[in-house]
Computed example of a mutant assay.
Amino acid sequence: MAEINAISRPLAVSQGDPAGIGPDIALTAWLRRHELGLPSFLVVGDPSVLEVRARLLGLNIPIARVEPQEANEHFANALPVVAIDTGIPVAPGEPHPATAQATIKAIETAVHLTMTGVTLGVVTNPIAKSVLYEAGFPFPGHTEFLADLAQKATGKVVRPVMMLSGPKLNAIPVTIHIPLKSVAQNLSVGLIIETCRIANADLKTKFGIERPRLAVAGLNPHAGENGAMGTEDVDIVQLAIEALRSEGIDARGPLPADTMFHEAARQHYDVAICMYHDQALIPAKTLGFDDAVNVTLGLPFIRTSPDHGTAFGIAGKGVAKDTSFVAALKLAFKLGRGAAGNG
């Protein structure tokens, strides 16, 4: 496929939990598409949910049920939707396990469209993991599910790396959805090395950073104070950094996490590699709650997501901000365009 055709592909947006704010922000973003200069996108989800939500929000937005290849020709005048029936009426703010299979199918469809070259990248709207778990969903979250889909499609082992990307900070947690008490026992030299290798490679190929600078946080307070506050930083983190540097990767640390995230410190690195979920996500969300984007590195396709949850409490009330969703669309287009240009 020629480069110009690749770049002109729409993005595939999965609806997310239909009772959450995914439909709201997809609608308002489309309504502001010209003002914001948004790339073309299609929604994989239930057209009736979007129609009902638009009326509830008082928005005059035509919904076009389309085949994926038709999205671009409709985008200027209607929100194109590849239909996935939820099976039951959906009330905003009232999640139901009966909609889980449609939520899962929407993600699967968006990934399939992207991996087969129909769409440029995947933007996933928020899911409610507890709702999916009730329906038997076996994955901790989006990231692990996307990796499984990619692995099944390619036959190759896929190691996903979650990065929160905002205007002020890129941050990656090495361990993600595990209890804090389990972090130390799950942390290893190999895991840190693998995470940093993937980050380094994708920051080069997808973000265009010629020599990424990785700031690696310590696990313990003050990065362990040379073993006085725990030996993990010496025995695990430091050894991983030494191995990475021997490979030519610009990894620095272990650094005390309490001094890594102020403005002056952030000028000296391109991404913060953190040892656990909240060590990365607290500063990332503090510095860019409305415009940070969740990016999954290590996948054979582009995937971004708004950096917030389903927000059931405000779904359908007309107050949900589409800022992070818009940022996710723009970043997915930018990364997808770069990948298409390099392909």
Rank of each mutant, 00 (worst) to 15 (best):
E3V: 14
I4T: 13
N5L: 15
I7P: 01
R9T: 12
A19K: 08
G20K: 07
G22D: 02
D24I: 05
W30V: 15
L31H: 15
L31W: 12
R32Q: 15
E35V: 10
E35A: 14
L38Q: 10
L38M: 09
P39M: 08
V43E: 08
V44H: 03
G45W: 02
G45H: 02
D46A: 07
R53I: 14
A54L: 06
R55A: 14
L57K: 01
G58Y: 11
P62A: 12
Q69L: 06
Q69Y: 12
E73P: 01
E73R: 15
N77V: 10
L79I: 06
L79R: 14
A83Q: 13
I84S: 04
I84P: 02
I88M: 01
P89I: 12
A91L: 11
G93W: 12
E94A: 11
P97G: 14
T99S: 04
T99M: 00
Q101T: 10
Q101C: 07
T103M: 02
I104T: 07
I107D: 01
E108S: 05
T109E: 01
A110G: 00
M115A: 03
G117Q: 05
T119N: 01
G121C: 05
V122D: 03
I127W: 02
L132W: 09
Y133Q: 15
P138F: 08
F139Y: 15
G141Y: 06
H142Q: 15
T143F: 08
Q151F: 01
K152E: 13
T154R: 11
K156S: 14
P160V: 08
P160G: 05
P160C: 06
P160I: 10
P160M: 09
V161S: 05
M162Y: 12
M162V: 14
M162Q: 08
L169G: 12
V174I: 06
T175E: 03
L180K: 00
V183D: 03
A184H: 02
L187R: 06
S188Q: 09
S188N: 10
G190N: 15
E194A: 15
R197K: 14
A199F: 13
D202N: 04
D202G: 00
K204E: 03
E210G: 02
R211E: 15
A215I: 05
A215L: 00
A215T: 04
V216E: 03
G218S: 12
H222E: 09
E225S: 08
T231I: 10
I236A: 07
V237S: 04
V237N: 00
I241E: 04
R245W: 06
D250Y: 05
P254K: 01
A257F: 06
D258H: 04
Y269C: 11
I273C: 02
M275W: 02
Q279C: 14
L281I: 13
L281P: 13
I282D: 14
P283Q: 05
P283V: 13
A284Y: 07
A284I: 12
A284P: 14
K285E: 10
K285H: 11
A292L: 03
V293P: 04
L297Q: 11
G298C: 01
G298Q: 07
F301W: 11
I302R: 05
R303I: 05
R303L: 00
T304C: 04
T310Q: 10
G313K: 14
G313I: 11
A315S: 13
K330S: 07
L331I: 15
G336Q: 07
G341R: 13
